[in-house]
Write a protein that binds this DNA or RNA. Structure first.
Lengths: 154, 154
DNA sequence: ATTTAAAATTTCAAGCTTGAAATAAAAATG
DNA sequence: CATTTTTATTTCAAGCTTGAAATTTTAAAT
């Protein structure tokens, strides 16, 4: 009934720091694998994949500024990525009727098809990479990571 | 005693994909904050911080190639970062006796002092950023993330 | 000893990323 | 209606990152 008195505990800040280093290590490791696979197997990059993923959720396209908000990157960044996707015929810019400042970016049919292929491989890679985790592990992690994200930006 | 039969479960791959997106979101969010703080408060960058952190663990310095192995980045990358740290008087290159190809990078006294300051602020920021998590939360997360990292590269 | 292979680092081009400055157009203000 | 402010995007310079090519030096093989 009486809890054992705990001897000297490590400061909580150290425990949280250790956690952050784990998150960083896993995240970096998975991202590095994804980049390599996207490059070697699909001749593309992670930023391009992210932009295509965003556009694939919005078949009518997104304004350049909506896209940079959505992906939390700078406007200038999106400009360059859409430039390169457009060069490859995967995305294009459409004028916005009634506002000559704005541009809408959207996937071309070729881009839509290419992304469907990427997305399927992506889900398979992630499933393989996180294969050590059971359903319960994954649920617990997702719940606790959401807790860490709570009451913060987005 | 008899487990309830579970109705249609979502595929485990979807659960793992959701988890990956959470990890990525938290990692990106924390890194963005760190970069902003390093820039605004200390006029430095996260890559420079990472290199200084590595060198601070090895007071006698590390060979350029050991440094890039340790940080899992390319050789050319380290060359550039050490160049810039050296320009600011925070690091320097030392010749390796007996091997005229190799160079050892190490912190200057100024670099050591600067890093001690950065490291303290860093731990405080992380503690604040992950403040929603209890000790038990942090331990559980660390354990499960280690499981996800197991049997993989380093 | 020469030649060949391996190792350590730097250089380079291309792409990503940012924040700040520049453009251009729309909206608000007086 | 003219002026000012705000909004949307692009351009730009600087730094980060990579993989490949180039240099230089060491080690191995013949």
């Amino acid at each position: 009934m009486n809890p054992q008195p705990q001897p000297d505990q490590e400061p909580l800040s150290k425990e949280r720091l250790r956690l952050w280093l784990r998150i960083l290590k896993l995240s970096s490791s998975v991202q590095a694998e994804l980049r390599r696979r996207l490059r070697d197997n699909h001749d593309t990059t992670l930023p391009r994949f992210d932009v295509m993923a965003a556009l694939s959720r919005y078949p009518d396209g997104l304004k350049m500024s909506e896209l940079s908000d959505y992906l939390k990157v700078s406007n200038g960044n999106i400009t360059g990525i859409i430039d390169r996707l457009a060069e490859e015929g995967l995305a294009l810019r459409v004028a916005v009727p009634g506002d000559r400042r704005a541009m809408i970016a959207r996937l071309t049919p070729k881009g839509t098809k290419a992304f469907a292929d990427l997305a399927q491989h992506h889900e398979e890679w992630i499933d393989d990479r996180l294969g050590n985790l059971t359903r319960e592990d994954a649920k617990t992690l997702t719940r606790l990571l959401n807790k860490a994200l709570d009451d913060r930006n987005t």
